[in-house]
Design a protein around this nucleic acid. Structure first.
Length: 450
DNA sequence: TAGTCGTTGGCGTGTACGGC
DNA sequence: GCCGTACACGCCAACGACTA
């Protein structure tokens, strides 16, 4: 119980007291000393015991430990050991201007996440690792039920969140318990992801802010590598108070994501809701529904009716006719298209990506228009395979014959768009037609060149 | 005995949807 | 466009069973 810096051994009566002193504590700033002891990740019993003894800040704990905390009610050997261990780890983690929390966590035997080290985490790498880190934290702290809630309610796209009721049915519990669990998970993750902020208290959480002991008593025994948190911090720094206050439309969300992380919402599909949650953002439901409807319409139009694509103006006009006041404006269209992985902008025209066009003939039309000239059916079949189709050469010919958009060029195997109005007969037929148009007879036909 | 886990019931709010 | 209804959800209070 005693550390090496104590000069004289304690009296017998003080044998269960806590004594701890270390010269390195002098390097701690007054601001840091004013922070709550909960930052040291002590168990609730230890926090409660210290709180009862009037010790609520790190500075108070250091001062009292140097003088000796003789009577610590409701603290047994384990609790006293834990406090000593926290003080010891703290003394070994002091750097010139701050605390090295990773070193502190190592000294305490906590889990350091993510396991792999990187000097720099790009937004893409962060997004890839985030679900694993969240699952590691929740799996170890919360158990199987919490993992299901995490998966169905947080590690998913904002539009795919399972209802409380359905999630509850999955784990055999009530929707209210799912809500409480989700709140606890969110709180836990907030504390893990924002370790230097005031401890989180979510609305509806079991923790009550009026009760100091409850307020500070829970911190997860995890430490995230600070460099891993950098992308999230940059994102939070780029947000305005207005962004946090109002419910964001999907377009606002898309705009912010592109500006800060240079990614699109579907790229963070697996963790979209968690990221929104960690950043304290929410999406507007009504607007979201409205835009999802518009997006569905655009998808259908471009995949079936206009596989060759539409200009922004054409698309806006058609949508206005079909959706009326619910139609997106010209200005909103580019972002709406960017939001949908099935759509793309190609040479100034919006169109479905070839891989998601539902009909083979639509793909053929796309390929031919792109080439701008007739193509052999074998090459057409190969090209559509490269773009995600599965049609064989034989089936391709059948589809080309059946679809009035395409015409064969004589018996060459070449196919063109009917809209191109090309001469598609054989050389003999073209020559005969040429002669007929010029009223030439056999006698009057010109002699072939020597 | 305090804390945790999980349930129950109730109230208010926002949204979707159908009927008029 | 308005209205009523159903549904999902947030939030809260209270409670019992269990456990360290």
């Amino acid at each position: 119980m005693l550390n090496q810096f104590r000069q004289t051994p304690p009296r017998q009566a003080e044998a269960f007291a806590i004594y701890f002193s270390n010269p390195s504590f002098q390097a701690l700033s007054p601001a840091f000393k004013r922070r709550p002891v909960a930052l040291l990740c002590l168990k609730p019993r230890a926090i409660n015991a210290l709180s009862t003894a009037g010790i609520r800040t790190i500075g108070q704990l250091i001062d009292r430990a140097e003088r000796g905390i003789v009577s610590l009610r409701a603290a047994g050997v384990l609790t006293r050991n834990e406090i000593i261990s926290a003080l010891d780890a703290l003394s070994k983690s002091i750097r010139t201007d701050d605390i090295d929390w990773v070193a502190y966590a190592k000294h305490r035997g906590f889990v350091i996440l993510p396991e792999k080290r990187r000097v720099h985490w790009s937004p893409q790498a962060f997004l890839e690792e985030l679900p694993r880190v969240a699952a590691a934290v929740v799996g170890l702290e919360g158990g199987a039920k919490a993992l299901v809630v995490l998966r169905e309610r947080l590690l998913c796209a904002a539009r795919n969140v399972l209802t409380l009721e359905k999630t509850g049915r999955q784990i055999g519990t009530t929707r209210e318990f799912v809500r409480q669990l989700e709140n606890d998970i969110t709180g836990m993750l907030h504390e893990v992801f924002w370790p230097d902020q005031q401890l989180w208290h979510g609305a509806g959480s079991r923790r009550q802010p009026s009760d100091y002991r409850r307020w500070v008593c829970r911190r997860s025994r995890f430490q995230l590598r600070p460099e891993f948190l950098q992308p999230l911090r940059e994102f939070a720094a780029a947000l305005t108070s207005e962004d946090k206050r109002r419910a964001l439309s999907p377009l606002d969300w898309e705009r912010i994501l592109r500006k800060v992380w240079e990614v699109r919402p579907y790229q963070l599909e697996a963790a979209e809701n968690l990221i929104l949650n960690l950043l304290g953002l929410r999406l507007a439901k009504r607007t979201k529904t409205m835009f999802l409807g518009a997006q569905k319409k655009i998808n259908r139009l471009l995949a079936h009716d206009y596989p060759e694509g539409l200009s922004r103006r054409e698309l806006a006009t058609i949508l206005r006719k079909k959706l009326g006041p619910m139609a997106p404006t010209m200005a909103e269209l580019p972002a709406l298209v960017r939001l949908d992985p099935a759509l793309e902008l190609f040479h100034g025209r919006y169109r479905s990506r070839a891989g998601v066009l539902s009909r083979t003939a639509d793909r053929f039309e796309r390929i031919l228009r792109r080439a701008g000239k007739p193509m052999h059916f074998r090459k057409l079949a190969t090209s559509q395979t490269l773009e995600g189709g599965r049609t064989t050469e034989l089936a391709a010919v059948g589809k080309l014959y059946r679809d009035p958009r395409f015409v064969p060029i004589a018996k060459t195997g070449l196919w063109a768009m009917k809209a191109w109005n090309l001469d598609t007969g054989s050389i003999t037929e073209i020559a005969a037609e040429f002669w007929r148009k010029n009223h030439w007879t056999r006698k009057s036909s010109p002699r072939p060149l020597a």
